[in-house]
Design a protein around this nucleic acid. Sequence first.
DNA 1: CGAGACATTGAGTAGGTTCAAAGACCGTGG
DNA 2: CCACGGTCTTTGAACCTACTCAATGTCTCG
Lengths: 240, 240
Amino acid sequence: MDAGKALDLGRCYSCAVRHSGLCNALTDDELLRLKKIAHRRRYAPGEVIFLGEEQTDFFAAVCSGVVKLTKVLFDGRQQVVGLLLPPDCVGRACGKKTPYFAEAATEVELCCFPHGSFEQMLDGVPELKQRLLEQTLDELDSARDWMVLLGRKTAEEKVASLLLMLVTRAKRFDDSGEDQQQPVVLDLHLKRQEIGDFLGLSYETVCRQITALKKRGIIEQPSRRRFRLPNPQALATIAG
Amino acid sequence: MDAGKALDLGRCYSCAVRHSGLCNALTDDELLRLKKIAHRRRYAPGEVIFLGEEQTDFFAAVCSGVVKLTKVLFDGRQQVVGLLLPPDCVGRACGKKTPYFAEAATEVELCCFPHGSFEQMLDGVPELKQRLLEQTLDELDSARDWMVLLGRKTAEEKVASLLLMLVTRAKRFDDSGEDQQQPVVLDLHLKRQEIGDFLGLSYETVCRQITALKKRGIIEQPSRRRFRLPNPQALATIAG
DNA sequence: CGAGACATTGAGTAGGTTCAAAGACCGTGG
DNA sequence: CCACGGTCTTTGAACCTACTCAATGTCTCG
């Protein structure tokens, strides 16, 4: 590849999506093609990405931050149906409306692909479509895991499972070969209310469970939204 | 297409998968190719299809009956994470293990495609892969709807939602243009325990909710597993 | 007709919600 | 720099929904 291309791709080199997400399926040349139709967009915490039940005009990869997908019942009850971290994708690839509400939970950076050109690219690059299929299948598997949590786990197990899930996802990237026994630090960007909506609990219950885990020494809380997990193994046992 | 092909395809003509499932994406010629690698298999109610956490050797379309996907917690708590009706598909298309337990809930007939040859076919026929992707996206959407039910709905709403969901799915096929207000008959092949495991409730609670709906005249019960819904609209209101 | 599986109903309990109040954190402006 | 207001979190108390345990009823199939 010549120097010009290298320059053009600049930002992509350090992007999670390039290394383990959608773009992982692409050659440098294809990546360049994709980049030409893409534009980056930043969202502030709380900003709306998709309103739901509307035709969206782009499909996007999450480059940084956390995106929260929620569904709302007629009377305001909410359920978080997905948390997207890099290198996940937001939006529905093929035509249809996204049947949920997408919101930036933290500062978020998306790499947006307008629908028409993206689908063209999908049709032209089989590896890309294959990759998208696999990511969708993985998401379906996680959704099913979450159904078990929502339907059958106790409040304590739910909270432990969430912490564990986030640690696991975070570790996937800054993994420097350390073992499972190591204490871990976790930044939880969600507020208690959001955690509750994700776990199918009231926020008060979330609070109480966190307090209980602290008292048992399973977790520590250096600051409000930061946790230390001195013993991930114990947490896993509680999570079931 | 010549008469020989028509003969070969015989069974496929009347198959739900051909009309609205995977095979819908195929020409007659491609269908014939797919049929050559497929074999049908029947399962009795309760029979295991996949054990979970194992490499499966086929991917399959549900031609008739109901397949139940469940996950089990260490202490026996169960959660049904999917009900597959024709023309849904069972199994994981791309390589990985199926992380759940698949079981025939009724008499079931599958059309099984051995992994190797099926993936070859997927790669050769873009429309097929596209179709698989779309079905997977739809399944993900349903899973998320179910998360709302599990996390945020009351027992009453859960039971109403289940009945409504099954009616909707059943109607999709024998739809003769009738309106929504018409009374509907529904055969529920699941036992109370399974309904509970699907809704995240105990079977006693399922019973009580069904009884309550009967007393309110929202549903009738001609026989143990058959229901009449005189007023689907009212049920929808309850379901939320 | 009897046995076993499944469904229903009742009574008591517990886990989680709701309502309420107090405490901690954060950014803003005086 | 500190005081102030708003938002978020924590904790307590009362309540309620759904669970558990237990007994009875009903269907199905040999």
